[in-house]
Design a protein around this nucleic acid. Sequence first.
DNA 1: CGTGCGCTTGACTTTTTTCAATAAAGGTGG
DNA 2: CCACCTTTATTGAAAAAAGTCAAGCGCACG
Lengths: 234, 234
Amino acid sequence: MNIVETLSSIPLFLGLPENQLVELSRIVVDKRFKRGDIIFSEGDEGIGFYIVISGKIKIYKISPDGKEQILHILGAGEPFGEIALMGEQFYPAHAEAMDKSRIFFFPKVPFASLIKQNPSLALNMIAILFFRLHEFTVMIESLSLKDVPTRLADYLIYLSERNGGVSELKLDIPKTQLANLLGTIPETLSRIFAKMTKQGLIKTDGPNIKILDYHALKELSTAEKRLSDIGELF
Amino acid sequence: MNIVETLSSIPLFLGLPENQLVELSRIVVDKRFKRGDIIFSEGDEGIGFYIVISGKIKIYKISPDGKEQILHILGAGEPFGEIALMGEQFYPAHAEAMDKSRIFFFPKVPFASLIKQNPSLALNMIAILFFRLHEFTVMIESLSLKDVPTRLADYLIYLSERNGGVSELKLDIPKTQLANLLGTIPETLSRIFAKMTKQGLIKTDGPNIKILDYHALKELSTAEKRLSDIGELF
DNA sequence: CGTGCGCTTGACTTTTTTCAATAAAGGTGG
DNA sequence: CCACCTTTATTGAAAAAAGTCAAGCGCACG
């Protein structure tokens, strides 16, 4: 697949006329990263933005004492570092490859002028930003208003529903990373997996998780705490 | 001040040609709310978006057991409920007037077509969304990676710096609401105010807060925890 | 075949919340 | 103007949730 074809399959570039795709193909830089490579760090000058072609990228913050909070895990077709497109900006978080990844890089200046010229590109960008904003809303709600068991239940339900409601899941990230995504630490996550297993909600075997009691998990995920109804869950 | 003049002073509409402002003035609905009025609730159908003209609006989530997390507190010129502009969407949070407020409402359909026709409107919208995204990034980092004393220190420093570094602050929201904004509860916040006061960092008198030791507060806000250096702060 | 990393578990500590009671402040109607 | 009532703020004691520290296991990878 050539560059223009690849570009045309990216949601952000949907509906772009051929000539603009060609123009994009002239400014794009095709980059490869291996697991653990840092793409940019928080505070780096925003020299452009990126789109994942293959592989997996995590965007994350780190506290002074080393705790990590993952903001996003991005897969094929998803952009990141878009903040670089705004005036004089620095990246507000770190970006690291979680697997061998292929990334397209778009330098700030030529891309910014493209977006100014092409209304449908601007509208696509707006759509993506709205989506991001919504994701963050959910994350804030989750971190502030839900405890860790509930956040894990949410995540398992999400994984299940994303695959059409299957009960056999396979985590595609290490549990340590999942802890960082859910805003906790590996020890706590491990204990909650153990407790859910003991209660017959799930069964785990390494990265494979089987949901045994979908209903109870869903209750935990959505319902008001009614210990009297549910029994002492945690 | 007439409607068109008022519209022209709103950041989102900066750079719009006169005729488009006039067009906007034809679709806008001028609304008034008093303290405590609900503008929309989470899950309501997004029928349009709003801009604060005067007063103060909070956007917030509520957990099943009633705890509230404020996502934003918006003042004059700031838009909210923009998510309504995307396809079939529901408001993802609640909006409530914190004071007597005047709000402009823009119905979804006519506004969406305006944004499609006017590139500079689209670009202004992109800028606002980027800004929001950045705010949320900071909030997630704060909730996940910092404890409550640090979040309060951050907030006080922020208030101080916003006013050019003054040391005498006046909270413009009740402490209960501040607790909800910082992701905690009034009791916890109250205890931390008391502790900071006892340590000579601040002095409080109702909503008035005087920063006595800006440096120590800033340390708390930014620095790595080094108990050995700082002494037992909390 | 060892080294290291990811994962788990136990014991303990810290942070934050919960529950309950009380005090102070602010607005309203008599 | 004052009494009353509601809202907001504070404080103590206890409980719960999550994090820290430390140790140990097992599997993958060089």
